[in-house]
């Protein structure tokens, strides 16, 4: 089976200043993501999660090594099969929710308008509301709706539930689970492991730019005799 995402000895070094050596955000990282699975990319702040996610989305270039998405270097083709949710507001604030839907409809052929409207109704969000009038949590829900309403091959979600209330988290988890197809995969990066543990198939623990643990959730639980959340607290204890 072809890997959806392949990281091959990827290193990313951030330079600060012209002569400075810089910091390694990723250090010789290799992993693959296969179709039909939900992956958790877990690690403390500054561990390199967002850097890896940005590389999958062609927002950053590796210093060395290579990243492949569906067998090709990230570019126009990969962007049409990846549905990406960043950990910030990326919509223009003059837009209404409706405008954002139209934008996605125009640029992504796989955007399912009916699915988006259904999720909007379930979450009680007015499609005529201006984005700048929405609360942070509601804005995150709108962005999640936009992302999950696509019939993409890979969903990359960077902190999808960090800004929403606990009551909405279950709905969002349910939304994520019910909206991805058998051939699709999801990569979720988060700190809120308790909330997502139950939906994960595989996890990648990352620390200081290096992968410290990866594998199937059930195998890891059996091997360590702990939940993923418990193991996370142990591995990343301050």
């Amino acid at each position: 089976m072809t890997a959806l995402v392949e990281f091959n000895h990827v290193t990313k070094q951030y330079k600060s200043g012209i002569k400075a050596e810089g910091v390694k955000a990723l250090d010789d990282v290799s992993f693959t993501l296969k179709p039909g699975k939900i992956y958790g990319l877990l690690g403390p702040n500054g561990s390199g999660k967002s850097t890896a996610i940005k590389m999958i989305n062609d927002l950053l270039q590796p210093t060395s090594g290579h990243v492949l998405v569906n067998g090709t270097v990230p570019g126009v083709e990969s962007k049409s099969i990846i549905s990406y949710l960043p950990d910030c507001n990326y919509l223009q604030d003059w837009m209404k929710v409706e405008d954002a839907f139209k934008l996605f409809e125009e640029f992504y052929q796989d955007f399912d308008r009916n699915r988006a409207e259904e999720m909007l109704r379930s979450l009680n969000i007015n499609s005529q509301a201006r984005l700048k009038t929405l609360s942070k949590g509601t804005l995150e829900k709108v962005q999640l709706i936009l992302v999950m309403a696509r019939r993409a091959k890979l969903y990359v979600l960077d902190e999808p539930i960090a800004g929403v209330d606990p009551a909405a988290r279950d709905y969002i988890m349910q939304t994520i689970l019910s909206n991805y197809g058998e051939e699709s995969s999801i990569l979720i990066s988060t700190h809120l492991i308790t909330d997502i543990e139950k939906i994960l198939d595989e996890v990648i623990f990352i620390q200081n730019g290096k992968i410290v643990l990866q594998g199937a959730v059930d195998d890891i639980r059996a091997e360590h005799g702990k939940s993923i959340d418990g193991l996370f607290r142990e591995v990343f204890r301050c």
Binding site: N57, V76, K79, I82, Y84, P86, C88, F107
Partner: peptide, 13 residues
Amino acid sequence: GNEGYLMFTLPVK
């Protein structure tokens, strides 16, 4: 800026 996350993930050159 932040809008770049959307612009650069649209399937355009």
